[in-house]
Amino acid sequence: MAGNAPTASEYVVHHLTHLNNTGHAQENIVDWSVINIDSMFYSITIGLLTVFLLWLAARKATSGVPGRFQGFVEMMVEMVADQAKGIVHSAESRKFVAPLALTVFVWIFLMNAMDLVPVDLLPRIWEGVYASAGGDPAHAYMRVVATADLSAALGMSCGVLLMCLYYNVKIKGVSGWVHELFTAPFGSHPLLYPVNFAMQIIEFVAKTVSHGMRLFGNMYAGELIFILIALLGGTATAFGFIGHVIAGSIWAIFHILIITLQAFIFMMLTLVYVGQAHEAH
């Protein structure tokens, strides 16, 4: 940052503040008038990259001998298709759910992978651009990992919730689903209706919140640790430099596992939740 070097806490807070339409950190916990420009930029850019890459493979897809790239994409398609077949027992629903799961897997993987970009690289470039445009670099916020934004992660899990509600109604009919809401899981008895209904609502909320929170938590924690490791190197001492190299390497290598695993878990839970919406209690 230009000017005075920030303290460690200023550095961390700066890195964890979103670039939004207000230009400063969001003050209320929930504020629907605020939108995070950085999250939207990175998630849309990476989303377009995702569908572009997939489309690139689909455009040239033939039944002949596949190239390496096509083979790679086909491998993912086959993996997702197999999982979907095992979990969602409706060929009609799979036509939408399986492609969705594939998109979600690749998209979240790539968004997570932004964690492996050096933690100061893109924010520092943005600071330079912002300063040269006459702004105060101290307010040039930028977070590059869209999945480490709670709103974005919950946005996707809410999308899954909407799908669950849609398929519940579609498969069971409105009356069937309402019947299930009041009679499952404890049984059909007027006294049990409120309890059943409360349990169902808790189940939906818990599923959705945990689905989004799990992804957010993992990526947020990973990002924070990268920031802390960068702070270590920021001490500009021999210990800090060696510590940064060793800890950064170990954490980045370990993080390859986490970003893949979290993308896979999000995809699998999407399939599982949609699959559950197809099954009567």
Binding site: Q26, V34, M40, S151
Partner: peptide
């Protein structure tokens, strides 16, 4: 914090899936 990013991300989610 929660904000309108949630809604936007939800829309993007379905647009990409549709594509």
């Amino acid at each position: 914090n929660l904000n309108a990013t949630l809604i936007a991300q939800l829309v993007v989610f379905f647009v990409l899936a549709w594509f």
